[in-house]
């Protein structure tokens, strides 16, 4: 057995080596297969140097995530407590968390036990592990959504494009069983069924839940989930840039003055 493992190691190393070194050269077909049109640029409230997330949209987006997305997708990097940043009160956060069950322990008897999630817990994943997720989704793994707008080219525009990009396949294109045709998904064939539709959620704030509205709201929420520091970053940025601009102005004046006797 040990001999077998030892003798197979060089083969494994070679395989990995070939895979690794070949990939930049073989990227061409993958690139061609993965070609998808650039999603149209949308207007988002958090763009620009003073941009902020729209609070009502964040709340609606959270509702969409909890009612629709979280059935299949995890949001591992976000803690329930972080929802205070988008304006949820402590009680509201507790209420959201308490809908979920986490396994904790071991207790004093050495047993694991189940309890309600607390604000300190991270968003509870819908599946125990990746294999369970694949098993329930026809072999496809629903990706974690925590960094979705940072981890895709064109970020939020792509996400919005994907959610609203389910169209009938062009004539002659055969969609594989269990797959759906999406305009903006690389390769166009995606395992995720169209996740949203008009009136699929009933918004707590009474906003009309059109497909477009739902896609925008959940994109806003996931953009926050990916960059919860965005508002603070931009606020601090304005101050820091102003201070350095003024300081640089003074330094320029000082430089002029010191160099005056040299000109």
């Amino acid at each position: 057995m040990i001999k077998f493992i030892l003798s197979s190691l060089p083969v494994a190393a070679l395989a990995v080596a070939t895979l690794g070194i070949a990939s930049p050269w073989t990227s061409a077909p993958a690139e061609a297969a993965g070609s998808a049109p650039t999603p149209p640029a949308q207007k988002w409230s958090w763009q620009g140097p003073f941009g902020t997330f729209e609070r009502p949209a964040l709340r609606r987006g959270l509702q969409v995530h909890l009612e629709i997305c979280s059935a299949c997708h995890s949001l591992d990097l976000v803690a329930y407590r972080a929802l205070s940043e988008i304006g949820l009160s402590d009680d509201e956060i507790k209420a959201v968390a308490s809908e979920f069950v986490v396994v904790d322990g071991p207790d004093d008897d050495g047993d694991m036990f189940e309890r309600e999630a607390l604000p300190a817990d991270h968003f509870v994943a819908p599946f125990e592990n990746d294999n369970a997720a694949r098993a329930s989704n026809g072999g496809a793994l629903p990706p974690d959504l925590s960094l979705m707008t940072k981890a895709r080219v064109h970020g939020p525009d792509y996400l919005y494009g994907l959610l609203t990009g389910y169209v009938d396949p062009p004539v002659g294109v055969e969609v594989m069983p269990g797959m759906y045709y999406n305009e903006y998904y690389p390769g166009h064939q995606i395992a995720m069924a169209p996740p949203i539709d008009d009136d699929l959620v009933e918004y707590a704030d009474g906003t009309a839940a059109t497909t477009d509205q739902i896609a925008r709201d959940v994109t806003t929420f996931l953009a926050w989930a990916a960059e919860p520091e965005l508002e603070e970053r931009k606020r601090l940025g304005v101050k820091v840039m102003l201070v350095i601009l003024i300081l640089t102005g003074f330094l320029y004046a000082l430089k002029k003055r010191i160099w005056a006797d040299q000109h």
Partner: peptide, 13 residues
């Protein structure tokens, strides 16, 4: 100072 404006524009924006 000028360079920090360039650098921090990336960092913050």
């Amino acid at each position: 100072g000028v360079f920090m404006l360039f650098f921090l524009a990336f960092v913050f924006y």
